[in-house]
């Protein structure tokens, strides 16, 4: 396996989508190629930090107030059953 071939498989490797044979080939290459080992490490980390970003940072306070005022009529129209 060449470094370019490894690069082409990286998305599927990190997503656990490779069949076992391809997975093994990738792992053998990584164990013998410092450059690809470093790449895989950084790529994996890139994926992990994105998943760790907060999904619901609070709204900016001024916007939250405006938004609440805007849906206020809807709140009255639809009382909880």
């Amino acid at each position: 396996m060449t470094c370019q071939e490894l690069l082409d498989l990286l998305h599927d490797y990190v997503g656990n989508e490779l069949v076992i044979e391809s997975r093994t080939t990738v792992e053998v290459h990584i164990s013998g190629c410092l450059q690809c080992g470093t790449l895989v490490h950084a790529y994996t980390h890139t994926v992990r930090v994105a998943r760790a970003l907060p999904k619901c940072n609070p709204l900016p306070a001024a916007f939250e107030a405006r938004l609440r005022a805007m849906i206020e009529p809807e709140l009255k129209d639809k009382p909880a059953e």
């Binding site: 470094c3 690069l7 082409d8 470093t38 790449l39 490490h41 980390h45 760790a52």
Partner: peptide, 20 residues
């Protein structure tokens, strides 16, 4: 096209980043 890539150095990161 997605390659070739620059080699780069090894990232020094903590084992767990559940909280960034």
């Amino acid at each position: 096209s997605g390659g070739p890539v620059t080699p780069g150095k090894r990232w020094e990161v903590g084992p767990e980043e559940s909280v960034l």
